[in-house]
């Protein structure tokens, strides 16, 4: 917070009574706008929350946000309904997400460093290849990939979901980090090499510490996307004890048969809690980073 305030004064550079007043009015206006927008953003989630407490036969016709009667039955039913408690699914999702974060941060930053900072033959070619893997719809590589993982004996384990992350398979993050690394002053490297630093030391001691915002961004996205991912777990996990939360959620509803909509909305709401907390915690890291180091260029 402090840095935010400092930043503002520095950025605007204004002073005096009138500007302060003007600023107060502006801030009020900004708050008003932001609150209004927040309600707009939040409405669907509030609706979901209310649906989770609503009698099931009201969910699809009710127009008001306020349920006619409140009940936590959906939560109880949802948590225990699948023979295995939802705690197992939360744990599975958490394990996969944490491993994915470690893998992505470690290996994507290595690759990004190579693409952004090192000279080597074929760099442009490999960079194009890397981006190319981003462009093919996954639906058509699914089956060959499944065959591969099946031959390796990895089906029905977390390995197909986690190992690729440790092999920098997520081009999105490589590209993201490349863009940020390239934004860092190149004199840093040149100065470091004067001091006799190896590329590894430049990567580890200079670039990474200055890259907190992008690393935090990568961590947040990895967590959320892994947490929300549905298709890969659907294909690779079969044993319900290995299910992730998203996979478990999809078992509540089958549109041709009797479904548990209340349970779906109740558990969907609960599933949002960990991601939301994770986001709140990690976004603080976004605020730190180079902007606060006062580095000279």
């Amino acid at each position: 917070m402090i840095t935010d305030v400092q930043r503002l004064t520095v950025v605007t550079g204004d002073s005096g009574e009138t500007t302060r007043l003007r600023k107060g009015a502006l801030s009020l206006l900004a708050h008003g706008l932001l609150t209004l927008a927040s309600i707009l953003m939040l409405y669907p989630l509030l609706w979901m929350l209310s649906a989770s407490f609503r009698p099931e036969n009201e969910i699809f016709t009710a127009t008001s946000l306020w349920p006619s009667s409140w009940s936590i039955q959906s939560y109880i039913r949802g948590w225990t309904g699948l023979r295995i408690g939802f705690d197992t699914f939360f744990l599975n999702s958490l394990i996969i997400a944490v491993l994915a974060i470690i893998g992505n941060l470690a290996t994507c930053s290595l690759a990004a460093f190579a693409f952004a900072r090192l000279e080597f033959r074929g760099r442009r070619f490999w960079f194009a290849m890397m981006l190319g893997t981003l462009m093919l719809p996954y639906q058509v590589t699914l089956i060959p990939q499944y065959v591969l993982f099946h031959q390796l004996g990895w089906v029905n384990t977390f390995l197909p979901l986690v190992v690729p992350k440790f092999l920098a398979a997520d081009s999105f993050f490589i590209f993201l980090m490349v863009q940020f690394f390239r934004g860092l002053p190149k004199e840093l490297d040149e100065a470091a090499m004067m001091d006799g630093c190896s590329p590894w030391r430049i990567y580890w001691k200079i670039l990474l510490p200055l890259s907190t915002p992008v690393l935090a961004t990568a961590a947040i996205f990895t967590f959320i996307w892994t947490w929300d991912d549905f298709f890969a777990p659907l294909i690779y996990l079969s044993d319900i004890r290995t299910y992730t939360v998203q996979l478990a959620l999809r078992t509540f509803v089958d549109s041709s048969a009797e479904s548990d909509w209340g349970g779906l909305f109740a558990m969907s709401t609960l599933t949002l809690v960990p991601v939301f907390i994770f986001f709140l915690v990690f976004q603080r890291l976004l605020i730190e980073g180079i902007a606060t180091t006062g580095m000279k260029r």
């Binding site: 499944y146 065959v147 659907l234 999809r250 078992t251 089958d254 549109s255």
Partner: peptide, 23 residues
Amino acid sequence: IDGEFMAFQDYWAKLGTQTAGGN
């Protein structure tokens, strides 16, 4: 018996993949 179930919409992609994958 390891029973596994899912929504109709998701079912055919999984069955297709497993069958094509020899599993």
